[in-house]
């Protein structure tokens, strides 16, 4: 890793960090379309618990996922103070409900560490890597978990 930095081909990446389920997470900035305040959704019948419903984003119907619930934390009770991060995952546009957005983090690729293998719960499976910070660390969300295994969103 350090060798990479020495060679100078260590790419700078930017991540947006946010809080969901009380923990620090981040998403690579190029995957993010926009960040909006929470607004009431239209509830979908027969949807999994973490799918809150759909919103109208300039004419497109966008599903909103409670990321905390998806990761196995307690579901968020959304209020106006909560935030929706609109992300693009493969060819889908999905909104993630999170508690708050913190900052934009610029890091070198070499600073991204592999996820330490612990027990395989939902949250661990969803983490692509970790970025150590001074006091804490932030975990990179693998947005692939939001994609359907077979035809259905985040089932």
């Amino acid at each position: 890793m350090l060798d990479n930095a020495a060679k100078g081909d260590d790419l700078q990446q930017e991540f947006v960090t946010f809080i969901a389920g009380g923990q620090n997470f981040c998403i690579e900035i190029t995957q993010i379309r926009e960040i909006r305040r929470w607004a009431p959704v239209t509830v979908l019948p027969h949807s999994p618990r973490h799918v809150l419903g759909v919103i109208n984003l300039r004419g497109a119907v966008i599903p909103i996922v409670d990321l905390a619930a998806k990761l196995g934390f307690a579901p968020i009770e959304p209020t106006e103070r909560h935030v929706i991060i609109i992300v693009a995952v493969s060819d889908r546009i999905i909104g993630l409900l999170v508690e708050s957005v913190s900052e934009i983090l610029g890091v070198r690729q070499s600073m991204v560490k592999e996820t330490p293998r612990t027990q395989e719960d939902e949250a661990v499976k969803a983490i692509e890597g970790i970025i150590p910070q001074e006091q804490d660390m932030t975990k990179i969300i693998n947005l692939g978990i939001l994609l359907p295994q077979s035809g259905h969103l985040a089932a």
């Binding site: 979908l44 019948p45 759909v54 004419g59 119907v61 889908r92 359907p148 259905h152």
Partner: peptide
Amino acid sequence: VKSMQGNYGEIPGISGA
């Protein structure tokens, strides 16, 4: 009529939005 298929998937009983 908007399709739900693109960003979500099929929902039983719902044809679109």
